[in-house]
């Protein structure tokens, strides 16, 4: 196991903090919502076929993740370690949402399961067709190098 003597976070990595991604549009599709609902066994009548409303958790499973394009890759592997979702409005099936992300913070972490690792915190907002925020998330990813991992 080897750990770096200095931070591997460079000024170039830090320059990503605060920069907003491009708006990433996507449509909340009925088939995606149904697939996730069925997989979870969700029988909530508010989200049944024909209601036009999706349960909040579907956003987390959709692949519109603009943060993927803006998060700097300091170490080769990454795992999600913290996630927060806030929901402001019902999610309407068929509506086009736009996601926009930005990096909030990048910091070193010493010790722990992965040895030296880098924490990258980013936020994503989901806007509806009127430009109103329907949901927002803050995620912290831990980047690590298996070669430096303690376990």
């Amino acid at each position: 196991m080897t750990e770096p003597e200095e931070s591997l976070i460079t000024d170039e990595h830090r320059a990503a903090i605060g920069v907003k991604s491009e708006l990433a549009p996507f449509v909340l599709r009925e088939e995606d919502v149904r697939r996730m609902r069925d997989m979870l066994g969700d029988k909530d009548p508010r989200y049944a076929d024909g209601t036009g409303i999706a349960p909040p958790y579907v956003l987390s499973g959709l692949r519109s993740r603009p943060d993927r394009n803006i998060v700097p890759q300091v170490l080769p592997r990454g795992i999600l370690t913290q996630l927060e979702w806030r929901f402001f409005k019902p999610l309407r099936i068929g509506s086009e949402l736009k996601a926009v992300a930005s990096v909030i913070d990048i910091r070193d972490r010493l010790g722990g399961r992965y040895g030296y690792s880098v924490l990258v915190m980013s936020q994503t907002e989901y806007l509806d067709e009127d430009g109103e925020v329907v949901a927002a998330s803050i995620q912290t990813g831990t980047q690590f190098d298996p070669e430096m991992s303690r376990s």
């Binding site: 979870l40 066994g41 969700d42 909530d44 909040p56 927060e84 979702w85 806030r86 929901f87």
Partner: peptide, 19 residues
């Protein structure tokens, strides 16, 4: 989220989840 929603019932609304 689904677990809490099932417990809370279909007139409740999940406002936030922090994990």
């Amino acid at each position: 989220t689904h677990y809490v929603n099932e417990w809370a019932g279909h007139e409740a609304t999940v406002k936030s989840v922090r994990v």
